[in-house]
């Protein structure tokens, strides 16, 4: 029962968080400065997501094989590899490192 309660509450919270901006602001245009902030939200949140995902709580989840794998993704993109190929490169690099290190 507690699982269902938790699922229901988180579903409602998620709905409300996504809904509140569009519902409250409506079709009002943001000011130039606010739009300047909004324009930077994507790179900022993505950078935060990558760091939090890699580091884990208290940086206890840091796994250097994963970091090297992400380096492989960056290298593949620098060589103009398509997105899926770049991601696959990261997976292969990480998996090979883990196998090699036992």
């Amino acid at each position: 029962m507690t699982i269902w309660l938790a699922i229901g509450c988180v579903a409602l919270l998620s709905f409300a968080m996504k809904a509140v901006g569009p519902a409250v602001l409506g079709d009002r245009e943001l000011s130039g400065r606010a739009r300047g902030v909004v324009a930077l939200l994507a790179p900022v949140l993505l950078a935060g997501l990558v760091v939090v995902n890699v580091a884990g709580p208290g940086w206890r989840g840091l796994d250097w094989t994963l970091v090297v794998g992400l380096g492989g993704v960056v290298a593949a993109r620098a060589c103009r590899a398509p997105v899926l190929v770049a991601v696959l490169a990261g997976v292969v690099v990480t998996a090979v490192l883990r196998v090699a290190l036992g």
Binding site: L40, P43, L46, L49, L66, L70, V73, V87, G90, V99
Partner: peptide, 26 residues
């Protein structure tokens, strides 16, 4: 073991790299 835990941060990283090309401010 299969390195599949890289997939999600890798996609965020690819999207981030595209965003970084947009401006010095980004």
């Amino acid at each position: 073991d299969l390195g599949l835990d890289v997939v999600f941060p890798a996609f965020f990283l690819v999207l981030l790299l595209d965003e970084l090309r947009s401006s010095g401010r980004a």
